[in-house]
Simulated scan of single mutants.
Amino acid sequence: MAVAPSVLTVLRSQAQDPVGLLRAASAQLGSAVGVLSSFGAESALLLAFVAEADPHMPVLFLETGRHFPETLAYRAELAEALGLTNVQDIRPTQAELDARDPTGELWAFDPDACCRLRKVEPMDLASLPYAALVTGRKQAQAATRALLPVVEEKAGGQLRLNPLAHWQAEEITREMKRRGLPPHPLVAQGYPSIGCAPCTQPVGQTEDPRAGRWAGLAKTECGIHTAS
């Protein structure tokens, strides 16, 4: 679903204002804007901006069946606290799980296949109606995201809007505290980036924030943001 050049111009004019960007996206694209959120370590700030811009905007949460219990509790707490009215759980079908991961151990021997099954394919399907998807990705998260733009055009014409692309971790922490936003409970235990429980571990203070994701493997992304 391609977006008109005039819409891109409007969105790029709001690149330095996260709430302004989200309001402009909602005004220009209406219900064709969705938000991707993991309800992870720094998700609260983006979701607060979403709630301020349009609390009815669809928020898509990948329910992989492998989350930390703390993440699921945080998802419910944060959505209620911010007044988000349209949080949707996106998950693989039981038939696909039975066929491709009958023992529930696919993550252990083929994490890429597990991510395709539990994240990439369900999100590809769920995101089809949207001209633009809002993400919480930031340039400072990892070397693979160092050049991430605020308004990102994908090969298929769909947009990714990354309102926090240029924000540093300390800025996010400071703004979350200013707004009184609750942190993810695992952050205090050394998890600056939080994904599925089997594939996430704590990291040291001097390590890349995403070093605990698929630690020891060449894998750095689940695939939902790298596909065209």
Score class of each variant (00 low, 15 high):
residue 116 R to P: 00
residue 101 D to W: 09
residue 158 Q to E: 11
residue 75 R to K: 15
residue 36 L to W: 07
residue 87 V to R: 10
residue 39 F to D: 01
residue 112 D to Y: 04
residue 224 I to L: 14
residue 17 D to Y: 15
residue 155 A to N: 07
residue 74 Y to K: 11
residue 206 T to I: 10
residue 157 G to F: 06
residue 28 Q to T: 09
residue 67 H to K: 10
residue 128 L to W: 07
residue 40 G to K: 03
residue 127 S to Y: 00
residue 13 S to V: 14
residue 128 L to M: 12
residue 188 A to N: 13
residue 147 L to Y: 08
residue 186 L to R: 07
residue 162 N to L: 10
residue 74 Y to Q: 08
residue 224 I to G: 03
residue 173 T to V: 13
residue 28 Q to V: 11
residue 118 R to L: 09
residue 189 Q to H: 15
residue 23 R to C: 12
residue 109 F to S: 06
residue 223 G to I: 08
residue 96 E to P: 00
residue 53 A to K: 12
residue 174 R to N: 12
residue 165 A to C: 05
residue 101 D to L: 05
residue 134 V to D: 04
residue 151 V to I: 13
residue 85 T to N: 11
residue 183 P to I: 05
residue 39 F to Y: 14
residue 179 R to F: 03
residue 57 M to S: 05
residue 109 F to L: 01
residue 65 G to K: 02
residue 42 E to Y: 03
residue 105 E to Q: 11
residue 105 E to K: 14
residue 207 E to M: 09
residue 4 A to N: 05
residue 186 L to P: 04
residue 86 N to M: 02
residue 89 D to N: 15
residue 196 C to R: 05
residue 182 P to D: 00
residue 32 A to M: 02
residue 215 A to K: 10
residue 35 V to I: 14
residue 51 A to D: 09
residue 151 V to Y: 02
residue 89 D to I: 11
residue 12 R to F: 02
residue 39 F to V: 13
residue 201 Q to I: 06
residue 103 T to H: 14
residue 215 A to N: 08
residue 110 D to S: 04
residue 213 R to N: 00
residue 82 L to E: 02
residue 95 A to I: 08
residue 121 E to N: 08
residue 190 G to A: 12
residue 90 I to L: 10
residue 174 R to Y: 04
residue 78 L to C: 08
residue 186 L to V: 07
residue 218 A to G: 06
residue 139 Q to C: 12
residue 167 W to A: 10
residue 29 L to A: 11
residue 85 T to S: 15
residue 35 V to W: 12
residue 14 Q to R: 15
residue 162 N to E: 08
residue 16 Q to E: 15
residue 127 S to T: 09
residue 62 L to H: 05
residue 133 L to H: 00
residue 53 A to G: 06
residue 138 K to L: 06
residue 79 A to K: 07
residue 194 I to H: 03
residue 207 E to V: 09
residue 4 A to Y: 05
residue 69 P to W: 10
residue 217 L to D: 00
residue 112 D to V: 13
residue 87 V to N: 12
residue 202 P to R: 11
residue 44 A to V: 02
residue 98 D to S: 10
residue 156 G to L: 07
residue 54 D to R: 07
residue 158 Q to K: 14
residue 14 Q to I: 14
residue 127 S to Q: 12
residue 34 G to I: 05
residue 157 G to K: 03
residue 74 Y to A: 10
residue 207 E to K: 13
residue 174 R to G: 08
residue 29 L to Q: 10
residue 200 T to C: 07
residue 50 V to G: 11
residue 136 G to S: 09
residue 142 A to N: 15
residue 13 S to F: 14
residue 72 L to C: 11
residue 224 I to A: 06
residue 116 R to D: 14
residue 145 R to C: 00
residue 56 H to A: 05
residue 61 F to L: 11
residue 191 Y to T: 05
residue 70 E to I: 13
residue 88 Q to V: 13
residue 206 T to Y: 10
residue 86 N to A: 04
residue 50 V to K: 13
residue 113 A to M: 09
residue 29 L to R: 11
